[in-house]
Design a protein around this nucleic acid. Structure first.
Lengths: 150, 150
DNA sequence: GTTAGTGCAAATACTTTGCACGCAG
DNA sequence: CTGCGTGCAAAGTATTTGCACTAAC
């Protein structure tokens, strides 16, 4: 089934800006885009959608589970395509690079912890912050860096 | 050593509002307070510190590692006393209750993941969201709840 | 033709900053 | 007395909403 039809199936009209937004996530080097990234990328190709509408569309897509919204520390929310498989993130606080990972053991332990505490788990968020290999090589993390303000 | 001296040692003047803020964290039932909570608790005892100053003090305390600032989804940042021991959180998205936990296996796996990916880890944030036992008993989590807006 | 989508501006929530005055050391 | 601390107001950032207009189905 093509994208426009999938959108309609979700009760969303298949407008050009919406189709382009989805394409952006499929094509972009960075799988993680925030509202402003999307806004700027659209404008680069003369699609002058307002920022408010970008937010509305991203939110609708997130509600429809086409996108997933992530909240990382110190930066605006980012969105990524929901490709079905849950994963967590490693984030380089120097260059912004984001890598995804999945660790079965961690997932299992999380469920165990919730069970022990009598919690019914709905979701979780695990983010590891540090320097990626490239940045660690460039910058000595032990030198007196001012800690990032959260 | 007493609290005023500890503050001075950190280069912070020991003013009454600051001392009371620290006491709030020590005495309060809820270990996790946001700026507005602190503001309101101070006002309940006729300490009319402005909200901006509350933010400034909380931030200074966080910089001085007396407090830790946490970012949970959907709510304003909360602060808690830094009691030296790292821990993660379980958060009830219905009543706001926050429980702390530490799972050695998860901690180890996080380090392993970072090592495999060649990341130098500086910090991490793990939050589990769901219903606590009390809320799960009251509300049927399977009934069509509108998902919390992140 | 209805209903949903959009632009724009304004509102919101949380947080930070500028400036002049006041109090701790 | 000197600088850090404070109140107040104003600015900022990220995000959401109201309203009138336009486009999709």
């Amino acid at each position: 089934m093509d994208i426009p039809q999938e959108l309609r199936k979700l009760g969303l009209k298949a407008t050009l800006p919406r189709l382009r937004i989805l394409q952006l996530f499929q094509e972009s080097k960075s799988k993680h885009l925030n509202a402003d990234d999307v806004y700027r990328l659209l404008h680069e190709e003369q699609i002058d959608m307002g920022l408010a509408t970008v937010y509305r569309v991203l939110m609708q897509f997130a509600d429809a589970r086409i996108l997933i919204r992530r909240h990382f520390e110190g930066v605006a929310s980012v969105f990524e395509l929901n490709e079905g498989s849950h994963h967590d993130h490693l984030i380089c606080t120097n260059c912004g690079r984001m890598e995804e990972f999945l660790d079965t053991e961690i997932e299992l332990r999380q469920e165990a912890v919730a069970r022990e505490r009598n919690f019914v788990l709905h979701e979780h968020s695990l983010s590891l912050y540090g320097f990626c290999g490239d940045c660690a090589a460039t910058i000595n993390p032990l030198a007196g860096r001012k800690p990032r303000r959260p």
